[in-house]
Amino acid sequence: MQNVRSIFRYLRVFLIFVLLQGFALYLYFTSQLYPSIQFANSTKGISNSFVEAQHSYTKYFGLTEENRKLQKAYKTLLEKSPISFIRLDAKRATIEDTLFKQNYSYIAGEVLRSSTHKANNFITANIGKKHGVKRGMGVINHDGLIGYVYEVSEHYCLVKTLLSENINIDVSLPNGQFGLLKWLGSNPNAVNVTGIPNDTEVELGELITTRGTGGVFPRGIAVGHVAALNFAEGEANWDLSLKPVVNFGSVKYIYVVNHLHKAELDALEASVLE
């Protein structure tokens, strides 16, 4: 009798362990597949108010550096704006330009928190549904590519950065040859590009940019400089390692890319694929 009772006791402990463990693993693995059934993250509830409170103290760090970068970005834009140009031909009439129509708009946001040392690294930012952010939109900053929006709440969003598994973003070399961006999980200062044939000429230090397919990112957003070049094992491809232009440890401001004709593009592509 004593024995039976102790067996039952062990069984109960074991059962509780299996139940709770099953629940934890279910949460962990499903969150990787379907972001819609996540139970809680830093965009929601009390966890979010903690993040917000923390940010109210840490946001002043590195402000000088951040201002200098913004100044530089503004200077570049100013140089492209019409007021920086003089007219060479006085006889030419002013024509309203109908050749160009705005294709992308940007939603500016402030980073509340970021990480670089986990298996999936996220940025929490203070823009959400209310500001027009939707799941799957691209995210950049004034240095270059950051990632895409993974989860949105009313006032906040969670951005999956390049430092995540299955990030899979189309990137291209300056000569137009394109490949797929991946992260191998080890080093926040290195991301990899696969699928570039090894008869393509690649130079160390070359800038890899976004390819601009799928309407998530504009073409030509800086991703990283080629840092190492190896032959991929068993394939006729290069194994490229890039140093990202963005320092993910110190991102303060981000821009969410809003493709203005995304619905049209998606509908067209869907109609062909069906």
Partner: peptide, 24 residues
């Protein structure tokens, strides 16, 4: 003990966007 540890891990998960990894 297990229930408390699980709750603790889950709380940490909610704060650090790790979705159940700490709980497990």
């Amino acid at each position: 003990l297990m229930i408390v540890a699980f709750a603790l891990g889950l709380t940490i998960d909610a704060f650090s966007d790790t979705y159940g990894l700490n709980a497990s």
